[in-house]
Amino acid sequence: MVTLKNILISLSLLMITACGQSSKGNAQKKDSTKVVYTFTGPFDLAKLLLKENLPEMIHSQGIRRELKDSMDVTMLKYEVFKTSDPKALRFAGTDLSGTYGQRKNYALFHYAEDQKNLICYELTLYDQKQTDQLIGLLGKVGTLVFKMTHLPKGTIEIDVDGNEVKPEKSVRQTYRVWDNKKTGITYYLSEDGTGKKITTKLTALKKATKFGKDWISTGQLDWYKYSDSEPL
């Protein structure tokens, strides 16, 4: 059985490039030519509709850019903006910024090269308390549709090389999904590890867009559809 560790492995540039090359035609054009929405008011991730003019919004909010690394990638015909600025790391009024050792919470914003409209964002946290806060806040902006906080009984965990992981070496992994039918945005949240070793990743996108479909397929974000959820 495929485990969360395998499913949530970091996307490689090669995979995304290959997927992006297949995203041609009218569907791709439709995604990047939507009417761009001008964002107003204090910045808050929970209020984003994923159609805002990203460069304009970043400029008006005075959000600082951060240098990207090799894993901060996106699809062809899209750009990605990275920041750890506290101004950009607010969700439902809660500050989710912070530095933990050499690791710093950050956000990635994916937007179209042509129309500059925001299409997806990812938020990465390295703190358990902030993760717990975020989980509670997501329940206010969407409806929880899937939850897995432990591997099902009898499941054999395997590593990226296909080898069985012994129980004493197993790392806690969780997965939750929320839907907001009004905005069409789906929120995918994964936890890997606990305490000071936790890495939490939130991905927000619209499943109906071409970008959303390709990103979900490439990252296997919809694997949960083939698994049983824990009681919600």
Results as ranks from 00 to 15, higher is better:
117 N>T: 07
162 G>H: 13
143 T>P: 06
166 K>Q: 15
136 G>P: 03
121 Y>I: 02
190 S>P: 03
173 Q>P: 02
169 K>M: 14
185 I>M: 07
159 D>S: 07
192 D>A: 08
196 K>V: 13
133 Q>W: 06
113 E>R: 09
135 I>Y: 05
134 L>F: 14
134 L>A: 14
144 L>H: 07
153 K>G: 07
151 L>R: 07
134 L>Y: 11
133 Q>S: 04
152 P>N: 01
118 L>S: 01
172 R>Q: 09
170 S>F: 10
160 V>H: 12
170 S>P: 01
156 I>W: 06
201 K>W: 13
123 L>F: 11
110 H>F: 12
171 V>G: 05
112 A>D: 12
135 I>K: 11
195 G>V: 08
179 D>I: 07
187 Y>E: 04
142 G>W: 00
172 R>K: 11
111 Y>D: 04
126 Y>G: 00
139 G>I: 03
102 Q>C: 01
132 D>L: 14
115 Q>G: 12
129 K>L: 05
133 Q>H: 09
146 F>A: 04
183 T>P: 08
152 P>G: 00
185 I>T: 03
200 T>S: 15
188 Y>D: 01
147 K>H: 11
156 I>R: 13
190 S>L: 01
183 T>A: 08
105 N>S: 12
196 K>M: 15
182 K>C: 01
189 L>F: 14
156 I>G: 05
98 G>N: 09
102 Q>F: 12
108 L>E: 00
119 I>Y: 04
157 E>D: 15
158 I>P: 00
141 V>P: 02
197 K>I: 05
142 G>P: 02
142 G>K: 00
156 I>Q: 08
197 K>L: 12
200 T>H: 02
105 N>R: 02
111 Y>P: 00
152 P>C: 00
185 I>C: 05
157 E>N: 12
155 T>G: 02
201 K>I: 15
126 Y>K: 02
137 L>A: 11
116 K>F: 09
179 D>Y: 14
138 L>V: 08
112 A>T: 13
191 E>S: 12
197 K>M: 09
162 G>Q: 10
98 G>M: 13
147 K>I: 10
172 R>T: 13
131 T>I: 09
125 L>P: 01
167 P>K: 15
140 K>I: 11
194 T>Y: 05
100 Y>W: 13
180 N>S: 13
113 E>L: 10
150 H>Y: 06
180 N>K: 11
147 K>D: 09
108 L>A: 04
103 R>T: 06
175 Y>R: 06
124 T>H: 12
165 V>N: 04
145 V>T: 14
99 T>I: 09
160 V>D: 15
124 T>D: 10
126 Y>R: 01
164 E>W: 14
146 F>Q: 06
176 R>V: 02
135 I>L: 11
130 Q>K: 05
145 V>N: 02
159 D>T: 07
167 P>T: 15
197 K>D: 05
105 N>W: 01
148 M>L: 04
157 E>L: 15
192 D>C: 10
195 G>M: 11
146 F>D: 05
114 D>I: 12
170 S>R: 15
110 H>Q: 08
193 G>D: 02
125 L>M: 02
99 T>W: 02
125 L>F: 06
199 T>Q: 13
120 C>I: 00
132 D>Y: 13
124 T>I: 06
